[in-house]
Computed example of a mutant assay.
Amino acid sequence: MKIALVGVGKIALDQHVPSLAASPDWELAATVSRQGRVSGVEAFTDMTEMLTARPDIRVVSLCLPPVPRFAYARAAIAAGRHVMLEKPPGATLSECHALADLARAAGVSLFATWHSREAAMVDAARAWLADKTVHKLHINWREDVRKWHPGQDWCFEPGGMGVFDPGINALSIMTKILPAPVHLVCAKLSFPENRQTPIAAELTFTDGVSAYFNWDHQGPEFWDIEVQTDAGTLTLHEGGARMVINGAEQGAAAGLQGEYPRLYNEMAELVATGGIDMDLSPLRHVADAFMLGERVTVPPFDW
């Protein structure tokens, strides 16, 4: 199937383009971006122009920042195209619900992707926890925004989500592996005095679940989730790439693909069946944090 990639930035070039190139299901037929290009692929700077000029492209994958994404997704759906959304699927829950309603009315597929759910050991963790009683779960998610989003001020502008840009990856794993849902009860959000979104967050959920996110962390990243159960402790390391149960390292499933190849496999299946997958539970937790969170001002952040 021919697909257009909209928003040719770091994540598109690092993950989407190689995954599409390696897939037997997809042909990257066009891009839409103000500046970014992919060698050998027809490039547009205007979404409407691409949709008009390339009616043969059935699917659009949106890698834009969350704030402008709704308008692009709505235009694609109105043109009868299937749409794949990079995480988070929108800047607000209302936008996401509106897109789902539009997709159903248009009879096209819509996919809110959560790439961290496709990490090597996430499915195995979910299977192990399915019949366990969870006593505690703690997320420790620390990285350096300067490394992962160098100079990208949109992350700290309204709608950019700040530390929840990486933190939502942890929440996407949490909402997949827990046997029962939880909800937020309180939060502490640390806002640099010169920024509009938080750089750190402490979250407390029901049923012994908690999280700490830090986007100003120096040194090696920590992307860990520890779950204490009636049968011992399970820990996911490296964003779900590794799993340890009661001190023993667990092996990954044979033949497992990477996160983004698995997402594009799922998108191909959704298009084939006309399905919609718009699980918004990770974004709901983020929205709750902004509604309930205590705001704490911390020193300014600069690149």
Rank of each mutant, 00 (worst) to 15 (best):
G167D: 07
G167Y: 14
I168W: 00
I168D: 10
I168P: 02
I168H: 13
I168Y: 01
I168N: 15
I168C: 06
N169E: 15
N169H: 15
A170P: 10
L171D: 15
S172P: 09
S172A: 15
S172F: 08
I173R: 00
I173W: 07
I173K: 03
I173D: 00
I173Y: 05
I173G: 04
M174R: 06
M174K: 08
M174T: 15
M174Q: 15
M174A: 09
T175S: 14
T175I: 05
T175N: 15
T175G: 04
K176F: 02
K176H: 10
K176A: 09
K176T: 09
K176D: 01
I177Y: 07
I177C: 03
L178H: 08
L178A: 06
P179L: 08
P179S: 05
A180R: 08
A180E: 13
A180S: 07
A180P: 01
P181D: 10
P181S: 13
P181V: 08
V182M: 04
V182W: 04
V182L: 06
H183D: 13
H183W: 08
H183C: 06
H183G: 11
L184E: 07
L184G: 06
L184K: 05
L184W: 02
V185Q: 09
V185G: 11
V185L: 09
C186A: 08
A187V: 06
K188H: 04
K188N: 03
K188Q: 11
L189S: 09
L189Y: 04
L189F: 14
L189V: 14
L189N: 10
L189P: 05
S190W: 15
S190R: 09
S190G: 05
S190K: 05
S190M: 11
F191E: 05
F191H: 04
P192A: 01
P192E: 01
P192M: 06
P192R: 03
E193M: 05
N194S: 13
N194P: 02
R195N: 07
R195G: 06
P198A: 12
I199M: 10
I199S: 07
I199V: 12
I199G: 11
I199A: 11
A200L: 06
A200N: 02
A200G: 14
A200V: 10
A201K: 02
A201Y: 01
A201W: 01
A201M: 11
E202D: 12
E202T: 01
L203T: 10
L203H: 00
T204F: 09
T204L: 06
T204M: 01
F205V: 11
F205Q: 12
F205C: 09
F205H: 11
F205K: 06
F205P: 12
T206K: 02
T206P: 06
T206R: 00
T206V: 05
T206D: 03
T206F: 12
D207E: 14
G208M: 08
G208Y: 03
G208S: 09
G208I: 10
V209H: 00
V209I: 06
V209G: 00
V209L: 00
S210F: 11
S210L: 07
S210V: 02
A211W: 05
A211H: 11
Y212P: 00
Y212V: 13
Y212N: 12
N214G: 10
N214D: 15
N214W: 03
W215R: 03
W215S: 09
W215I: 01
W215A: 11
D216N: 13
D216V: 08
D216I: 00
D216L: 12
D216R: 14
D216A: 14
